[in-house]
Amino acid sequence: MALDTAPKGWRSFARYSMLTIVALFILFPVYTTVIAALKPGNKVLDNPLLPNAFTLDVLKNAWTEGRLGRYLMNTTVVALIITSVQLMTSIASAYAFSFLKFPLKRLVFGIFLSTLLVPLEVTLVINRRTIDSLGWLNSFQGLTVPFIATAFGTFLLRQVFMQIPPDLREAAQMDGLGHWGFMKEVAIPLVRPTLGALGLFSFLASWNQYLWPSLITTEDDMNTVQTGLRHLASSDLDKPNLIMAGTIIAAVPILIVLVVFQKQLVRGLTAGAVKG
């Protein structure tokens, strides 16, 4: 595959140099963050590019005083609930739209799809009142329930279900396989890769929620990582190293998740761009 016209060594050297330069640019904010988080307060402003002092105390402080440990746990619980329930509701509704026959199907599907167009900003204030009247402020219900159904997931899984030939369903029915059996034996195995992708996608989206949690929590115990960081930043700007330590603690778990599930991530993000 010798497509190159210039000498090979020179071309790869040029490519590596460019890759390195770009990588350094991208990592620069991360680098300064790490440097600051590992410095004691009196050294932060002193040569911000050099690690001329080292302490782990700031990270420890962010974990305990900044309560990031607690916030991380809350965020994990919220993201896991949203993700798993979203997967279940998406499978169920996608299945119904693909394999069940009922009146007004097109209308109901239209209702589902229309919700894709409504931005979160329009609904927030009114949803806050709804959650309040349900008595769900400061609760995992409040943080999760509005997001446990998704037209996006339904739509995505329905695309895959539609690839199953109708004959297959007919044949299965002849063999006495009911809907439950068909779902378990045929439909779900078929969408398993899509489920992984969708799951990671919604996990990431729930993890990064910013406005909603800040609206419906009034108890520190229910803060998520994002709202906790905001709090840290508004109260401790005189301790930049503490804030930077907080951002590291908030970013590392999700980085690990992403490295582990790299494949699903690519599939999840490209799901919307699949050939149609």
Binding site: V125, R128, R129, D132, L137, L215, T218, E219, D220, R230, H231, S234, S235
Partner: peptide, 16 residues
């Protein structure tokens, strides 16, 4: 219960 600042405290109070 720390609401983050005066403003957030007042906003949350008015909304609730």
């Amino acid at each position: 219960e720390n609401q983050g600042g005066y403003e957030q405290t007042l906003d949350k109070y008015l909304q609730s």
